[in-house]
Design a protein around this nucleic acid. Structure first.
Lengths: 205, 205
DNA sequence: TAGGATTTGTCCGTATGTATA
DNA sequence: CTATACATACGGACAAATCCT
């Protein structure tokens, strides 16, 4: 449990008001100065709270305009076409970059590879930053997800550190079995998602 | 394209040095004060640059210890080529029976039905114990899961009571949109699973 | 084991720039 | 053009965690 700080409690309060529907998607929040006056703190303290809400995808700020409630919480679709929703934040390319950076730190993974079946996979993994490219290097041109198991856990301190959430926060654990074209297992991947930031979306074909 | 700012250029410089291997995973960066002196800026400006690197998963700070290079960049493991299917509904296979049995002892339901589209659904729900049979009674012979959104949460005291877990335990929230044969929405079902007891399995068709 | 030095985290205040309304 | 509102950058002070003697 993280120590209660001013900006954290302010963020919690605002998040609660967002969840309660006090502000609806697209609404503009009070200005930073107004919020600072309301909570009796410096404007920078409010900014830190707003920054955490923006990081979680709940709001987004537009210079000169205000801080607006994000249309929808962060979603990650698991459908046949894995694409990021662009209507997430009404900002265009800036929103896209923010989304990508958000995703990049919203999950942890640990994979197990069958070295007996895939000679040279370890060297390939060291040479390539991408698992996909490493698999391609040892002859697995394509792979598909054969099974995914999902469960909810609490973040350990180590996981919280890497996911940039607080220890004990809810996380989503995914264990996925990826198989090659012939159905042979090529990777058993465990992934931990920051549950408060990520929503997995499953859609049938 | 973001305007070049001081903290951005500092972050770019540091990111370049990380990429160049000047600092290796696990290494400690110079202190904020040292970096501030090196770049000739205020400590807070360095902090903003470091925050952006931390957000991207490149470094992480430990109070009293320093700022360290992240062991492994947090790469998103779900590639765009990975296809997901979902087998939690519409099949009547063994997976569904297992699913239902799990649900019975470890999950809570709350459903929303479009009464305007389904006249008599409320009466049918009162008469039938099964949602499926209630829907059949008002003319929806079959329905499929159009979309499922999954996220991890913490159990509220009320949820904990019903799920027989402790408050604050991890739970898996599922929001499923069920549609009829014509694609019309027939049920929006929210389900909370006891995360420590339940594993959802997603398998291709 | 104790305590002081180091280092990051939080909070305040002020000033100025830049985009928006 | 003017006023508003967020963004950046400066500065100082203290708290909290860690490290080292």
């Amino acid at each position: 449990m993280p120590r209660p700080t001013l900006w954290r409690s302010i963020a919690d309060t605002l998040r609660g008001e967002l969840a309660a529907g006090q502000y609806r998607p697209g609404d503009r929040l009070p200005t930073e100065a107004q919020l600072a006056a309301r909570f009796g703190v410096n404007r920078h303290t409010v900014r830190q709270a707003l920054a955490s809400l923006a990081e979680a995808g709940h709001v987004h700020a537009r210079r000169g305009a205000g801080v607006f409630v994000t249309a929808r919480p962060t979603e990650y679709p698991l459908g046949r076409r894995v694409r990021f929703h662009q209507n997430l934040a009404a900002g265009g390319q800036a929103a896209e970059r923010r989304m990508l950076s958000l995703v990049r730190r919203a999950a942890l993974y640990r994979s197990v590879f069958p070295e007996a079946r895939l000679p040279g996979i370890l060297a390939a993994l060291e040479a390539e930053a991408s698992v996909t490219r490493a698999l391609a290097r040892v002859g697995v041109a394509d792979f598909t997800r054969a099974e995914t198991r999902l469960t909810a856990k609490l973040a350990t301190p180590t996981q919280a550190l890497h996911l940039r959430i607080r220890p004990g926060a809810p996380i989503l654990r995914s264990v996925a079995l990826n198989v090659g074209p012939g159905g042979q297992p090529v990777e058993l991947g465990r992934t931990w998602f920051a549950g408060e930031r990520v929503t997995l979306t499953v859609t049938p074909d």
